[in-house]
């Protein structure tokens, strides 16, 4: 009996301890963002919103964020569309060398991110596409394509293919069955795949750093540059805004589509 109590206490202690480790830096960043002092100080001696006003002073932050948003939105949409066909083919149709093909489609997440940037910049220079917004977007698409493939395959294996036969027996042709039965079933996989692709692309630094020049820049690059050159808590204010926006989006999407459960497991 006491052994069971010790076990439960240890799991609870270690578990919540690790959760605290996970939350602590983020919570502290939020606290520091309201700090009045120029230097990072914990706990803050006085509070102010000055650093939120100072966000605008991060070099080109507005246009860089817009570029990141545009590239992440369009890139994630395109890879999600490409992934629909690929996932259907993988789950439903006989394909030669399916295991190898699937491994190939999922492999970009396993190669060093920097390698994708290095390989692409040389190639895009040859194609005369380097340092353009679409060249940058292509780089991000290579990195994130695996995510919607993975979530769509997961959501398709969960669901019962005989419902499409049922639709056919009730008078739906192939396209109507796809639109009225298959696509609604894929919605959670589509949404979470798009969300993953979008967030990973929006946040990417190691590929972007090779593919931007001159006026073309992204949010993570400017944030990184600001952090490495300044010590004031402006990035903390920016981070707080960022975390709030991302949390709101995820909580809303989770309420409706249960994306978290799709990301559990492989």
């Amino acid at each position: 009996m006491s052994e069971g109590r010790i076990y439960r206490a240890v799991v609870t202690l270690l578990g919540w301890g690790a959760v605290a480790f996970l939350i602590f830096p983020v919570a502290l960043t939020m606290l520091v963002s309201f700090n009045e002092s120029f230097f990072i100080q914990v706990p803050p001696a006085a509070y102010s919103l000055d650093w939120y006003r100072n966000i605008g002073n991060i070099h080109e932050i507005a246009s860089a964020t817009l570029t990141s948003l545009g590239i992440a939105t369009l890139g994630a949409t395109l890879v999600t569309l490409l992934a629909i066909g690929a996932a259907i083919a993988i789950v439903r149709y006989p394909l030669p060398g399916k295991a190898a093909l699937t491994a190939f489609l999922l492999s970009p997440v396993a190669v060093p991110v920097v390698a994708i940037g290095i390989a692409l910049v040389q190639y895009l220079i040859i194609l005369d596409m380097a340092f353009t917004w679409y060249g940058l977007m292509i780089g991000h698409m290579v990195l994130v394509a695996a995510y919607p493939v993975r979530t769509l395959v997961a959501s398709m294996t969960l669901y019962n293919p005989s419902i499409e036969d049922a639709a056919a027996s009730l008078g739906a042709n192939r396209w109507v069955a796809f639109l009225t039965v298959t696509l609604p079933q894929l919605k959670p996989g589509l949404i979470s795949g798009f969300l993953f692709a979008f967030l990973i692309s929006f946040d990417n630094y190691p590929i972007s750093v090779f593919l931007v020049r001159g006026g073309l820049t992204t949010m993570p690059i400017e944030l990184f540059n600001y952090i490495s050159q300044n010590f004031d808590p402006t990035p903390a204010a920016f981070s707080t805004v960022y975390i709030f926006v991302v949390s709101a989006v995820i909580i809303l999407v989770e309420r409706r589509y249960k994306v978290v459960s799709l990301s559990v497991g492989r």
């Binding site: 830096p25 914990v42 994306v259």
Partner: peptide, 27 residues
């Protein structure tokens, strides 16, 4: 689970910055 998912989605740069704060000289 949602907290875990949010930290997965929160920017890597933001999270590293958090550690710069935690481990700062006056941190």
């Amino acid at each position: 689970l949602t907290i875990t998912f949010i930290s997965l989605a929160a920017s890597l740069i933001v999270r590293n910055y958090g550690w710069l704060v935690v481990l700062a000289d006056q941190g």
